[in-house]
Amino acid sequence: MSGPIRPPWAGPLGLYHPGTTVIHRAPAGLKLAFLAMFAIAVVAVRGPASALAFLGIALLAQLVARIPWHRTTRGLVPALVTAALIGAYQWWARGWATALEVSVDLVALVLLGAVVTATTRADTLLDALARLARPLRHVGLSPDVVALSVGLFLRTIPVLARMSLETRDAARARGLDREPRAILVPAAVRMVAHARATGDALAARGLGEN
């Protein structure tokens, strides 16, 4: 791909880490179903021993998928901080067993979730979502409209990011950058104007009809 590298939020490939392992190749629906079952099991089975077993499963998945640690740590750091804080609190309030169970359960679930995210392309997941959304056509949401909304969403984030910077510069130029209203109000009005212009453009292109 030529041109600048996509910022992480600009592309559908956000948190995906390419690979060919068995976990990468497994169908997205299967992975999601397994994750859901895992989450139910983690909550349902009590005790510190099972918590450690669940963490073992999640770590094994991470190893099998061959995801480098720095890929998963980004999503994991807040969870680890939370786990440490709640672990310390629970130890003081209810003893070491509860502390271990709660904090390890949390890390295990977040870790396995991160593995599923890192091994499944976001566009594959979006395709799966589009299939799931197909019955919505009975309530007037056609798959095309869903696909259009997703594309538009991805396209609009960089537009809004630029717009908010411009609005802040405009406020700064008038010496109003300490005034939240001078930034929020023009930014929101510009955003709504942009959305309405986009709606007109979609209609002009004959999209969202028939």
Binding site: D144, G151, L152, R155, H194, A201, L207, E209
Partner: peptide
Amino acid sequence: RRTVGFMFTDPDAQLVMPTPVEDVALSLR
């Protein structure tokens, strides 16, 4: 609208997909 194409002043309002090839493909749908 199939007969009359319409082009706007601001392409940012008109281009709705993240990449050029996706945007043209959307028109062709």
